[in-house]
């Protein structure tokens, strides 16, 4: 079994290095960091919510949007570059099975997502820590906190882990689409739509029974029942900042979210292998 996963590991390492060298990754990373810096200046506007809340929302929003874009585009690009450059044919001619190739590709991209999210999380931690120092000099703030911390830094990394799982689902879903799709562009467009569907899947599930027309009810019901619910991972705005609305998520609930995400990653990966098994590569 160790031998079976070794090629996966080698392909994953290679994919990760290849992805890290891509200009697109640097552009998105630079954009994210630049936007993170600007969030610092947006605080001068009166947005109605507190300054720290604004910074947290802004940073997490960036992590979600840019992370999703990166997961979709890099997965599709790396997969199709192997097919177009015919390196996949050479690779699969050696004793590397198709499932090993796909799993290796997925793991490489998933590690890239971890690196991306981790860099952003460290930046967020720095920005928040910097602002917290300024706030902790105000006696009213200290008094209102009554001994509680203003920012729960562990929540940032708790959220990072959830986002990493979510991006893993998105990446494996993109791989599934790529496994039967003929072009890179088609894969990216369909995966973007799938991402949107996953974000509003909960509405489809709640709402489909209210449609009178059977066909529409059936279609919306199918969408609701065949896509994962991404909102389950979007709890960032209820974390980090000490407030009456802070979500106290228990370990069991947290584990259930992870289990849910991992189950979808495994399912999508297995389905990609199933779909890719007889694909003509030449």
């Amino acid at each position: 079994m160790k031998n079976a996963f070794y090629p996966c590991w080698l392909i994953a390492q290679n994919t990760f290095l290849e992805a890290v060298r891509q200009k697109f990754f640097y552009v998105l990373l630079f954009l994210s960091i630049a936007l993170l810096g600007t969030s610092y200046y947006f605080r001068h506007f009166n947005f109605g919510s507190s300054e720290l809340k604004f910074i947290i929302d802004f940073c997490f929003g960036m992590m979600v949007i840019f992370g999703a874009l990166l997961a979709i585009i890099i997965t599709a690009q790396l997969f199709f570059s192997e097919l177009e450059n015919r390196t996949a044919i050479t690779l699969l001619a050696k004793p590397v099975a198709r499932w090993q190739f796909l799993i290796g590709k997925f793991l490489g991209v998933w590690f890239l997502m971890l690196a991306f999210s981790l860099i952003l999380s460290l930046m967020i931690t720095f920005v928040l820590w910097n602002r917290e120092q300024a706030f902790m000099e105000i006696p009213e703030v200290i008094e209102s906190l009554a001994g509680k911390p203003l920012i729960h830094y562990s929540d940032i990394y708790l959220y990072l882990f959830l986002q990493w799982i979510k991006l893993g689902i998105l990446s494996s879903l993109t791989l599934l689409i790529a496994s039967f799709s003929k072009s890179n562009l088609f894969t990216i467009v369909v995966a973007c739509f799938a991402f949107i569907i996953c974000q509003i899947q909960y509405l489809a599930k709640d709402y489909y029974t209210e449609f009178d027309f059977f066909f529409i009810r059936w279609i919306i019901g199918l969408i609701g029942w065949s896509f994962p619910n991404f909102q389950i991972f979007n709890i960032g705005d209820q974390l980090v900042l000490e407030s009456p609305h802070r979500l106290l998520i228990h370990a069991k609930e947290y584990c259930s979210i992870i289990l849910y995400g991992v189950a979808y990653i495994i399912a999508y990966s297995l389905l990609s292998v199933f779909s890719f098994r007889k694909r003509e590569l030449s």
């Binding site: 919510s49 809340k53 604004f54 929302d57 802004f58 997490f60 929003g61 992590m63 979600v64 949007i65 949107i196 974000q199 509003i200 509405l203 991404f230 909102q231 979007n234 960032g236 705005d237």
Partner: peptide, 9 residues
């Protein structure tokens, strides 16, 4: 709803 965490922003 599509915007996820960007909703507050």
């Amino acid at each position: 709803g599509l915007l996820g965490e960007f909703r507050n922003i």
